[in-house]
Write a protein that binds this DNA or RNA. Structure first.
Lengths: 151, 151
DNA sequence: TATGACCTTGGAGTGCACTCCAAGCAAGCG
DNA sequence: CGCTTGCTTGGAGTGCACTCCAAGGTCATA
């Protein structure tokens, strides 16, 4: 689960690395959120959260003494990141691969970097495609605007 | 199959509107492409081309006397546009709706414009999201880069 | 004219990413 | 204690966008 003892005032978990400037709903120590709280925070459904866990996309969510899920601030950060990756169009299988690398520890830094750089290139390509499409849309919209007026 | 400059003058068709500056494989008059030619031009599969037609996403593809499809330059333009819409993430159902509006004629200019403007907003949103993700990726990549070196 | 590559159809199958279900246990409140 | 709402599970179902299949007809070339 945890790859580094690095209990460094929490703010720099090597698992998650370079934590986002996101503020958490509750401070560390009281971060034992139920699944429905996480649903409210992330916008994901409970189904999806359980499914993410089942397919290995979550780094081992803690449980209450009766077996109910208790999510941490770190889990929330991870879900934020996963959500970002999701909207790049990255397949879930690739995100699972990344999660595996995280579980394997620091020795996979290189491979993780490669994966992220490849994703970065994809994002750049996608942005370029979207820009291109935007130009086409603008042309057509202005056509409809002028024709709609002149007729 | 060379991309001949082609006399793009070819009367701006109201169906397609604001023709793209694309050059066609063959000039108008000789534009009766088989499905496999269109596969080569567009990168779509023959299956997908037939499926597009079945669901009403194509504006009536011409047929040879024996019933085989013969695509025109105009069909190619339409497919180009559809492909652009596709990569904005627009659902096929919405593209079919647009195709229906085109079939209904000039009276639907307003609605077509609305649809395209809504798509335009979606594209802008998506670009913003991707930029956001890019920032996260860059932070992580540079983390891996420096940590990968210093350890 | 024969051969083989290409084209036709309706309908069934695939892969992805969820999404839902049933049956049962858990938690908080009056 | 009973009630309601919430959480658990494995497995089945859904919706989208293709993707493929079988069985047969067509076309170009030798």
């Amino acid at each position: 689960m945890q790859t580094t003892p690095a209990d460094t005032a929490h703010t720099a978990p090597a698992d998650i690395c370079s934590a986002p400037p996101r503020s958490h709903p509750r401070p560390d120590g009281e971060d034992r959120y139920t699944i429905s709280e996480v649903v409210a925070f992330t916008g994901l459904t409970a189904h999806t959260l359980r499914w993410y866990e089942r397919i290995g996309l979550m780094p081992h969510v803690d449980r209450s003494h009766t077996g109910q899920r208790r999510y941490s601030n770190r889990d929330l950060d991870w879900l934020d990141f996963v959500t970002k990756l999701r909207l790049t169009g990255m397949p879930v299988a690739d995100m699972v691969r990344y999660a595996e690398l995280v579980r394997e520890g620091e020795s996979t830094y290189g491979e993780r970097k490669d994966l992220l750089e490849s994703t970065r290139r994809d994002v750049l390509t996608r942005i370029a495609e979207l820009r291109d499409t935007l130009a086409v849309l603008d042309t057509k919209i202005s056509f409809y605007a002028t024709e709609g007026i002149t007729r």
